[in-house]
Design a protein around this nucleic acid. Sequence first.
DNA 1: GTCTATAATCAGATAGAC
DNA 2: GTCTATCTGATTATAGAC
Lengths: 189, 189
Amino acid sequence: MKPESRKQEIINAASVLFKEKGYSAVTMRDLARAMGIKAASLYNHIQSKQEILSTIIIDLAEEFTTGMDQIATSEETTIQKLENIIALHIDVTLRNADGLASLNNDWMHLEEKNLQYFEKMRHEYEENFSDIIRKGVKEKEIKPYNIDIMVFSTLSTLRTLYLWYPKQGTIDAEILKKDMISVLLKGVI
Amino acid sequence: MKPESRKQEIINAASVLFKEKGYSAVTMRDLARAMGIKAASLYNHIQSKQEILSTIIIDLAEEFTTGMDQIATSEETTIQKLENIIALHIDVTLRNADGLASLNNDWMHLEEKNLQYFEKMRHEYEENFSDIIRKGVKEKEIKPYNIDIMVFSTLSTLRTLYLWYPKQGTIDAEILKKDMISVLLKGVI
DNA sequence: GTCTATAATCAGATAGAC
DNA sequence: GTCTATCTGATTATAGAC
């Protein structure tokens, strides 16, 4: 284990608590207790509770943005792109499942500037996803169902992975990737 | 429109606010403002903020429990049962999308007794779902992928419908049902 | 880097008038 | 059924000692 900065330790502890109760229900006293210090001491390392939230969410959103941009601009087939998107979500989930809870459930508590930045990234991510599916339908790689339903269905499963994966440690990441690709793309029947 | 009780009006207004910001971030003053009255006046109709949350969540959880029990004990094929589960989620979502936000994101703020009751219902729902898939695999109606992945994948899409469906009013409920069944069961490629 | 003490504000909820 | 006024305790954050 590399030595983590005190700030990063606080952010990690906060991610766990935010996942359990949500940003608004976690107090600075709760966070301090989890760190074994007093609430006032937290402010030597972070500027505000809001800073913790925005760090968690914006870092993750930028990871997804970077990953999606690479996938979207590549020269691969639609199906390969979808496989890469699934792999991206699984990789991020394995690395930071706790933080993903805030990304999914507490983004609306970001303040003005970061909220706009986040919503812009999320919108572009969804647009990229839709474009990939649309191109796949056009080129007959994907079935001609409603585009929004296919995007929503796939994305909602990938976005909720953080809730489910930590609960069962038995599945290897590579097997998960393989089975997830099969289930999401080829269905269960 | 049938005349709603003042209590039900409060619960409906609360569902909308809880969906937007989460239970913990919504104050009784916020709720009163949405109703056009003062916070103290709310207490003539409800006992506590907690009572509002538990009413929203428990009513919905019981709807799902009743629906799933009927589906699970029926004599239909696995695929018909899965189609009925998808239809159940779509029906409940059309009727009360706002309340489903609390069911999904704020159940952890239920107090002791209702929390246990909710978790019991949720566990039994997931067990019923798993049993249906498992039987389907055994009888070769369903592909032999990892059971948990298939359950999680389907359920996470259905549980997140409340976020997505209200955002686009163009899709008819019956078409949504049909396409959702296709996408979830037969895949996109 | 952590502490105690405290400021300033806001939370859920109640009492009692109208 | 709604109001004003208020209680009690919790909240984020700061100041300054060690």
